[in-house]
């Protein structure tokens, strides 16, 4: 087994990369801080670093890892290289859930809206709904690109419903929703983190516990069944995990495009394996680094102005999709 040292090296490299990007993400922001600010006890520096940049960088790590693992799970479940939470409309479904919740719930007590739980639950429900619909259709439509189109259509439908809701809602909740859709890693305060972190950790642990079955699914459902895997149970667990990971992170950061689809491909290419024992942790690290990188890029304009994260992530992820389609074409 001469592949083991190579993988260990790659993992160490990825961990160092993630750590370096994490520190950079804290050090650089829309306000330039001197390096010694990290250690000083100036209350303004302290506020910026501990209550703003630290949760934001942590959110980037958590979100990047979560949506990428969600993408990996979906690609294995659908046996489709183009699957991912954003591409197949799970993020759009979560948006719809959030829209219904924020825009249609003027009669709910304000405390419930602000607690974070309502946001999460509606996003997860919306995500699961679309995931089940797409899963149902995937049994009829096997072709990669057709399923992609179906996912995009679901995204459009969810988008239309959101627009209709927007037209008939009050300005305050409309503003709340519009801000949410821009996608932002800085929206997660320590209070929200207390909700987001446990849910995401449960999702990631769930993914890790089913990695053996995921490897079996690589051969297709019939072979997997022949290996003694319960298809129904595994499929159910995958959907729960995807909903927890993609639903929760989307609820707090808004939809983040294409990262979830692109990262698993980067990892499989990097490690030259489809073994989930490698690709799951690899995807977590790679996803975290990539989103940290995207977050650093949003701060390029500097001085009090940042770009929306969604714009950057699409800029990174979309070319990878084009590359995969072209590669598939040349293979067949």
């Amino acid at each position: 087994m001469n592949t083991l040292p190579k993988n260990t090296l790659l993992f160490v490299g990825l961990i160092l990369l993630t750590a370096a990007l994490f520190l950079l993400d804290i050090a650089f922001g829309s306000v330039r801080l001197p390096l010694e600010a990290l250690l000083s006890d100036n209350p303004i520096y302290h506020e910026i670093i501990f209550n703003f940049r630290l949760p934001k960088a942590l959110t980037a790590i958590i979100t990047g890892a979560s949506i990428s693992v969600a993408g990996l799970l979906m690609q294995t479940l659908f046996r489709n290289p183009l699957a991912g939470p954003y591409v197949l409309g799970v993020s759009s479904g979560a948006s719809l859930g959030v829209a219904i919740f924020l825009l249609g719930s003027s009669f709910l007590p304000i405390a419930f809206i602000q607690s974070g739980w309502g946001l999460v639950i509606s996003a997860i429900l919306g995500g699961v709904l679309v995931l089940l619909l797409v899963l149902g259709i995937s049994f009829r439509v096997r072709q990669a690109v057709s399923l992609l189109i179906v996912g995009i259509m679901f995204g459009q439908i969810a988008g239309s419903l959101v627009t209709i809701l927007q037209n008939s809602s009050n300005p305050d909740s409309l503003k709340l929703f519009v801000v949410w859709t821009f996608g932002s890693l800085s929206a997660v305060s320590w209070t929200y983190m207390q909700v987001m972190l446990p849910l995401v950790v449960v999702g990631l642990l769930l993914a890790l516990t089913i990695q053996k079955s995921l490897n079996g699914l690589l051969l297709g459902e019939n072979y997997a069944q022949g290996l003694g895997i319960s298809i129904v149970r595994t499929r159910f667990l995958i959907i729960i995990a995807v909903a927890l990971l993609a639903g929760t992170t989307t609820a707090f950061t808004g939809p983040i495009a294409f990262i979830g689809m692109a990262v698993p491909h980067l990892v499989r290419g990097l490690f030259r394996t489809s073994d989930h024992r490698i690709t799951l942790p690899g995807t977590m690290l790679c996803g975290a680094s990539l989103l940290l990188l995207c977050d650093l890029a949003t701060q390029l304009p500097a001085d009090g102005y940042t770009l929306p994260i969604n714009a950057i992530s699409a800029l990174v992820g979309a070319p990878i999709i084009i590359w995969i389609i072209l590669k598939k074409k040349s293979n067949s």
Partner: peptide, 20 residues
């Protein structure tokens, strides 16, 4: 059923037979 998974070696495939 075709097995078209990327990045799977002969060893990986046969190893899946040990699944149970």
């Amino acid at each position: 059923d075709s097995i078209d998974t990327e990045n799977l070696t002969v060893h990986d495939l046969v190893a899946l037979g040990r699944f149970p």
